[in-house]
């Protein structure tokens, strides 16, 4: 830090300084409170409105046509699982490999470029990723499909997975790499069998985090996976997804659909909360 010189306020009245002090400190405390408030509100509101509609039907039934009450989101839940599966198949290997590349082979130009690209990718709006997937998969295939949706989710997962992998690998002490190399083990084997294995629990939690985030993504699915009110497991076809269904139901005028949308929202929040709790737990006790 350059500025070590202290510029204290001119000899103003001491009481005034003390009052300013208390006022500002209280304002900071208030800021803390009003940040937490919406969270708690969203959390409890979703739980309150969602949990009552969370019944076995929600997980096992298909949506009912407009006007009929009841039904569930079985197709959307399955769809989300399939979409995340496809996303994971793309996002996890690419993310882990670029994370390894950035951390283990840092110092050269390509690794800096990869790092920069991931940083930029993490800031690209998800809707833009959706357009990208649309151009690459939907347009050539001439129809909306789960494949396109999964692809979009995969791209969205890459930066998170890369970042976590990189951070976890950096936590591994250099001495461990050297120990392995000194035994005459090649560099890539060292990376794979020693470094990656030692960091695996951290990387897994990072993947969970990225998955939980992808599970809640809506925007990139709007014109890739598109949604579907019927049972569909063919990845060539438009497919329902939990967040898409929540969106459709939330903006609909039907009370019963709102109820179900809240239930879906509750499932998502629950997922996010659990995964984050898990990540906290795992990353805290290590190293």
């Amino acid at each position: 830090m350059k500025q070590n010189t202290l510029k204290l306020s001119k000899p103003v009245n001491l009481t005034r300084r003390k009052v300013t002090n208390s006022v500002m400190i209280s304002l900071c405390v208030i800021a803390g409170v009003i940040t937490i408030l919406p969270l708690l509100y969203i959390f409890f509101y979703t739980t309150k409105s969602g949990i009552s509609s969370l019944n076995p039907d929600f997980f096992t039934q298909l949506p009912k046509p407009v006007g009929e009450t009841g039904g569930g989101m079985a197709n959307a839940i399955t769809g989300s699982l399939i979409l995340i599966g496809i996303g994971g198949l793309i996002g996890i290997p690419v993310g882990v490999l670029s994370g390894i590349y950035i951390s283990e082979y840092s110092g050269n130009i390509t690794s800096t470029v990869v790092k920069f690209i991931t940083d930029i990718l993490s800031g690209v709006p998800s809707i833009v990723i959706g357009i990208f997937a649309y151009g690459i998969i939907v347009l050539p295939m001439q129809r909306f499909s789960a494949l396109a949706g999964g692809f979009a989710l995969g791209i969205l997962m890459i930066p998170t997975v890369t970042k976590v992998t990189e951070e976890m690998l950096r936590l591994i002490p250099q001495s461990l790499r050297e120990a392995s190399l000194a035994l005459g083990v090649s560099r890539w084997k060292t990376t794979l069998r020693i470094v990656l294995t030692t960091a695996s629990s951290g990387i897994v939690t990072g993947i969970l985090l990225a998955t939980a985030r992808a599970a809640g993504e809506t925007a990139p699915l709007l014109f890739t996976s598109f949604g579907n009110s019927f049972w569909q497991t063919n990845i060539d076809e438009p497919m329902a997804a939990l967040p898409l269904q929540i969106f459709a139901y939330a903006i609909s005028p039907y009370e019963d659909w709102h109820r179900q949308a809240w239930a879906g929202a509750f499932v998502l929040i629950f997922l996010v909360f659990t995964v984050n709790l898990l990540v906290r737990y795992v990353t805290r006790k290590k190293y």
């Binding site: 803390g32 708690l40 969203i42 809506t218 929202a265 996010v272 984050n276």
Partner: peptide, 19 residues
């Protein structure tokens, strides 16, 4: 509190919209 703020960042935007 930091944990809660982390969660705040992780809540899907669809839920913010709905709320």
């Amino acid at each position: 509190v930091s944990f809660l703020i982390e969660i705040l960042a992780a809540i899907p935007s669809i839920i913010y919209g709905f709320w």
